[in-house]
Amino acid sequence: MTLLIVGHRGAMAHKPENSLESYALAEEVGVDEIELDVRLSKDQQLFLLHDATLDRTAGDDSARGRGPAAELTLAELQAVVLDSGRGVVSLAEMYDATSTVIQLEVKDPATVPFLAEFFAARHEDAARTIVTGFDPDALRQAAELMPQIGRCIIVKTLADAERFDGGLAGLLEYTGSTRFACGFPGLTKETVEAIQARGLDVHVWMLRTLEDMRAAVALGADGTTSDDPAQAQQWYRQVLDERKARV
C-alpha cells in the first residue's frame, strides 16, 4: 500500500502557510495532495486563511487588529500585507496556480453553498478536490450540494468520532464521507481496516516525527499530512527500507 503525503497548508515549514509560494513548493517536492483552508469574505468571495483573523499571519500593521476576516471584503483582504509579502490568496488564484489534488478544509459552514456555485463553473477543479472539515453539518450539506466531490470528516481523536450519535459509523453515514481523517490517539490497525472495509480511505495527522511515520505505516493508513512534506517523504522511504530489512 502506498502512503499519500499531503502538504499541510502547502509546505508551511519552509514557506508562509496558505501562500502561493507554499503551494508551489509543495508541488515542487512532489506531494500527492495539498491541504488548505477556505473562508468567505464580507462580499461573499472565497479566500484562503486558516485563522478567523489575520493577526497571526500578519506581515505588517496593515493586517493587525482588523477583526474577523469574514467582516472584510476580498479587496480589503488582498490589500493587507501578510507574512507572505502580499494579501490573502483567493480560491480561484490557488486553483489557477496549482495542478495537484486539493484538500479543501471548510473553516466556516457559510462557505458551502458558495463552493457549490464555484465548482459548478469549474468542473476540472472540482474533479481534483476533496472537501474536508470538522463540522458534520457542513460536510452533510456539501454532500447534498456537491455530491460529485469527495468528502472527508476530520476528528482529533477516535473518541471524538465515537461520541457522535451512532458512533463512528453514524458519523461517516451522516456526513456521507468518502475518507476519514483522524489524529493518532486511539486509532488501531483493526479500526483502520474496518473503515477501509467500508470503502473509505483513512488519513492520519499530524505527522511531525519519524516515529509518527512508523506509526502511520504500521496502522496501514492511506495518507498523512505534514508541515514539511519533503521530510515526510524521506521518512517514508526510511520506514519502507526498515521494513524490507526485517523481511
Rank of each mutant, 00 (worst) to 15 (best):
L82V: 03
I195V: 15
Q238H: 09
T178V: 00
S22Q: 03
D212I: 10
T188P: 09
R243G: 03
V239E: 02
D51H: 06
P68Q: 12
E190C: 03
D83I: 07
L3W: 05
V239K: 01
Q45P: 10
I154N: 04
A121K: 09
I154D: 02
A216T: 08
R140Q: 14
E162L: 05
R66D: 06
F47N: 05
L36Y: 08
A121P: 01
L168N: 04
V88Y: 02
Y236H: 10
I5W: 00
V239F: 05
V217Y: 15
D43W: 15
K156I: 04
V89I: 03
V192K: 05
F114D: 12
E76R: 14
H123F: 03
T225Y: 01
R163Q: 14
R214M: 06
E190Q: 12
D43H: 13
D160W: 13
G199F: 14
L171S: 03
G65V: 13
V101H: 13
W205D: 03
A245G: 14
S62Y: 11
E21Q: 13
R56Y: 06
G87W: 00
H14Y: 04
R246G: 06
E242I: 08
R140V: 10
A116R: 15
H14L: 07
E21A: 15
A143F: 03
M12F: 00
G133D: 06
R128V: 09
A197I: 02
D108K: 15
A197D: 13
T175E: 09
E193F: 05
G186N: 04
A97I: 08
L115V: 13
G67C: 09
D241R: 07
G183A: 03
A126H: 08
L168T: 14
F184Y: 11
Y174Q: 08
G85H: 09
L91C: 06
E71G: 14
A181I: 02
G10Y: 01
Q148T: 12
A216H: 01
Q78P: 03
E190F: 07
Q148I: 06
L115Q: 11
A52P: 08
G59I: 12
T53V: 12
G10C: 08
A126S: 05
L54A: 02
S90A: 04
A75F: 10
G30I: 11
R214N: 07
A138Q: 08
Q233A: 06
A97L: 09
A181N: 11
V29C: 04
T98I: 09
D222I: 02
L72C: 13
M206Q: 01
A230D: 04
G85A: 10
L82A: 01
S90L: 01
R66V: 07
A69G: 06
A245I: 14
G65Q: 12
F164L: 05
T53K: 11
S22V: 02
G87C: 01
A218R: 12
A11M: 02
I195A: 07
L104S: 10
M1Q: 07
D43R: 15
R163D: 09
Q78I: 14
T73E: 13
K15Q: 09
L77E: 04
V38M: 06
Q141S: 10
A159Y: 07
A221D: 13
I34A: 01
L240I: 12
G186R: 01
L139T: 02
D61G: 12
A230W: 07
T225Q: 02
A221N: 09
Q231W: 10
T209I: 03
L3G: 09
L25P: 00
R198G: 00
A79P: 04
M146S: 14
R56K: 15
L139S: 05
G223D: 04
